[in-house]
Design a binder for these strands. Structure first.
Lengths: 243, 243
DNA sequence: CCGAAGTTTTTGGCATACCAAATACCAGAA
DNA sequence: TTCTGGTATTTGGTATGCCAAAAACTTCGG
């Protein structure tokens, strides 16, 4: 395949077939504002203050150097995502999730991930499954996860995302990513908790083993129970995190 | 009601403490446009014509009697939902799903519904579970589902939605509803297919039985397999529906 | 000092105007 | 007729301005 050109090939020309990089898509201000606001919201600790976090259209437009129009469109998108809620003539409030909502999301996550595990046993290559172990290669008897919670937490999330990607199901990937964004509101605070970290690694390895064995039912069950365990944990010990 | 005036309620107040219904939220044009466009998109048969269906902002704004601003905000929301995609300086196109995408969505649906079944066995009241049979009370040996495909299809969808609602998990309910909206693009064409209809009813009843028996694993499995069966069916026989 | 009425400010909702890119259209040359 | 160049049109993107409701502030009478 000499040239990546595709749309309606030109009649003749081809002047020395220099790489025509197809130009840049030039993302709009609307999308830039969406990304910027989304990142800002995810970065802030919404649960730190008692009073709700508010956003101001005009302030944001001035801050980002664009008019209110693209800002408002970005806000509309974020509202669809469930990150903010605009109250007419009152303001735009960053949504705070209750513990019950977070637990609920984690359960849905468990459902999707167990389906991913199921699919993986029938389609993924052994090579790719085995590669999942690499996420934890830095941890072992001499370097316990509970002594490097922060680091392990990152590896943990990366593992789960890689696992779901192996299912090659765009829907599962997208849905879990969305859920994860909401759940991560209290990243280290919950997922990386020491006491859970201790049991997490063995469970992950068990999941990988079931996948390698192509044991559909077992892999599905282990993936489900592992994440449901997290849900139960948050439900039991996450009280102090929510107001 | 002598006068339709409403703005600025009279100062006196309290006059006979009649039920003050909290006023109407007065949904904005943005939301009205969103609902209207969403319904319109779901109603049209996107897969009928070979060429992609396009939307025009100006035409829509004139059609709905509002300016382009709320229309654009509604479009931004629909784009987040995955119903449309706007291409800069080209137009707004109604997204057409491939067969693979639909199958993928049904699989995710299966995952979520099986989790709902799991939750139901531990929390729902027997009374509510048994009530699920009512959706099919009009069908039986003397009135086969395959002879009333259209009607059975509606009962089918209502059953699944009621089932998931019983889980009392807002996340599961919302996610499956979203998926269903996309899958329903070819409502009668797939879900109501005669050959599948025949096996559908018994499977539904089997799910209900497992729920009543509080058999978590079995209910989960039956719910999952039932919907995965639909996915497999679409994958095998849905070819003619996509381009 | 307190509170109610009135005024100003703030805030999101909406309409409108203009811009640039992509396309469609059209006239003129070969 | 066909191809080419240029021009008019279409279309989404963005900036502004104004409106009304709600909140914040001010003022004045008790």
């Amino acid at each position: 395949m000499p040239a990546p050109r595709e749309t309606k090939a030109p009649p003749v020309m081809a002047e020395a077939d220099i790489a025509i990089v197809r130009i840049a898509p030039e993302t709009s201000f609307k999308n830039k504002a969406y990304e910027a606001l989304k990142e800002a919201i995810l970065k802030m600790d919404i649960y730190a203050t008692p009073e709700p976090v508010m956003l101001d259209e005009r302030a944001l437009s001035e801050r980002l150097g664009v008019s209110r129009t693209p800002i408002r469109e970005a806000i509309a998108m974020l509202e669809q995502d469930g990150f903010v809620k605009t109250v007419p003539r009152r303001g735009i409030v960053v949504v705070r999730r209750t513990k019950a909502e977070i637990v609920d999301m984690i359960r849905a996550w468990a459902a999707l991930e167990s389906m991913a595990a199921r699919l993986i046993t029938t389609t993924a290559r052994k090579k790719d499954i085995t590669a999942l172990r690499d996420f934890f290669k830095d941890f072992g008897k001499d370097r316990l996860p509970q002594d490097h919670v922060e680091e392990y937490s990152k590896a943990n999330i990366a593992f789960h995302q890689a696992l779901i990607s192996l299912s090659e199901s765009p829907v599962l990937v997208d849905l879990t990513n969305d859920l994860l964004l909401h759940v991560r509101g209290y990243r280290q605070l919950t997922i990386g908790r020491k006491d859970r970290t201790a049991t997490s690694l063995p469970e992950h390895l068990a999941i990988i083993e079931a996948l390698e064995a192509r044991d559909t039912e077992l892999a599905e069950k282990r993936a489900r129970d592992h994440t449901l365990g997290l849900a139960a944990y948050v439900e039991a010990h996450g009280q102090e995190l929510f107001t």
